[in-house]
Design a protein around this nucleic acid. Structure first.
Lengths: 225, 225
DNA sequence: ATGCGTACCATTAATTAATTGGTGAATAAT
DNA sequence: ATTATTCACCAATTAATTAATGGTACGCAT
């Protein structure tokens, strides 16, 4: 039909994309509709689309459609997949990066009620009769710190990290002792973190949290031997 | 029927679980089938099942079934829920906390190939003809930095954050200019981040990344006005 | 030869139907 | 009067079905 101007449909498409009310990542009509709409054959349309795809202006996938923008990188944001691919070392490194920063923001945003609840948590963890109870209050404290950042996204990231951690470090059981050591290192370290948060000392909160996690890591390594 | 021995069905069930060809995590028949198979009423069966569930021998869930073993860790870290509850400010704050730390680890672990690819990315982004292409290369560069930490969990967290960001900052379109400014701030800042990574200067990499993100934030705020 | 139309394929999304644990009411049993 | 059984229904989940979409081969015409 317009073999004399093989670039015609390509030009039409470019115009469509330029003037488009279609923003990025939006889907454009299926090929069968679009070729009728432009008055060209499907083959011709597909040639033009292939050119635009090669330029990176759009991307296509069978069953999904044709989309504006660049092909999204497949995110391994899936929890089960991540869990199976990571390892305790990665978990610890990630924790060591993120939780101190969380403590930093917590020092900025925690309310008096938050801090009071943290102290309650620590008292309960001190009087814990079993390791399970201790761990429960320990988890609660760490999450409380994340909550007091008043940042739901940050809290969600903390939860994700925590879920992966629990799934990965699952085989590590502490059954050797039935009662937590009253001189357990975490008691004093928790105190220091919470004190820094209460003092609104962001740097110190981050530093203390990092130190605490490093101690935990060291203990885990010793226990593993 | 066997009211004289209310533990009868429980004993039967224990025997079934003990001799079971059913391994852990396997599903046992639905209640409606199982109660007929054991010759008891559904209510009686459910009492026995409740006991076993309390003991942690099995777990149940509506629509799924009854499974042997302990309940799998539930991850409430759902992406869509998070997206609906957060806002651009939270996204930016979280990004500002995490990405510099990622850059820090990248400075430690990036290979020469990684750094070469980062430079390719920057070159492509410089020669980008449209904002869409620029954004594509910008995203690619940031993810490349995350990849070069060689920490799959950290990469997954980055992807999660990125997915939320894209979903939240969705209305923000850059249509005012059709071509990226050759003096665009990001060019120089990207250079500095990559240079710090290439120099293995962890602190500088983190600092430069933080500075870059702050510039981006400032530009976004100006644009919003 | 080239292009157009038709039909079909593999993959994905949307829709619908079955399945399943949880719960309350009516009824029978004791 | 209390307890157990049966039935019906509910909310959540999964399985099955249908529709939609990009990719591709074949026949036909020009």
């Amino acid at each position: 039909m317009n073999g004399v101007d093989p670039q015609g449909t390509l030009t039409q498409l470019r115009a469509l994309l330029a003037q488009a009310p279609l923003s990025v990542d939006s889907r454009l009509p299926p090929e069968r509709d679009l070729c009728q709409q432009l008055g060209v054959s499907r083959g011709e349309l597909r040639k033009a689309l292939a050119t635009l795809e090669a330029e990176g202006q759009l991307w296509r996938h069978v069953g999904k459609g044709t989309f504006i923008g660049s092909r999204p990188t497949e995110s391994l944001a899936d929890l089960s997949v991540t869990t199976s691919r990571t390892n305790p070392a990665e978990v610890m490194q990630t924790r060591l990066l993120i939780e101190p920063e969380i403590a930093r923001v917590a020092a900025l945003n925690a309310t008096a009620a938050d801090i009071a609840e943290m102290r309650t948590c620590m008292a309960r963890s001190r009087s814990a009769a079993t390791w399970r109870q201790y761990e429960s209050w320990d988890n609660r404290l760490h999450r409380l710190i994340a909550e007091s950042t008043r940042n739901t996204l940050l809290l969600a990231m903390f939860d994700t990290l925590n879920a992966v951690r629990r799934a990965v470090v699952w085989g590590r059981l502490r059954v050797n002792r039935t009662k937590p050591d009253p001189g357990h290192h975490s008691y004093a370290e928790h105190e220091e973190v919470v004190a820094a948060i209460a003092d609104r000392d962001m740097d110190r909160a981050a530093r203390m949290m990092r130190q605490h996690l490093q101690t935990v890591e060291r203990k885990l390594l010793n226990q593993q031997q």
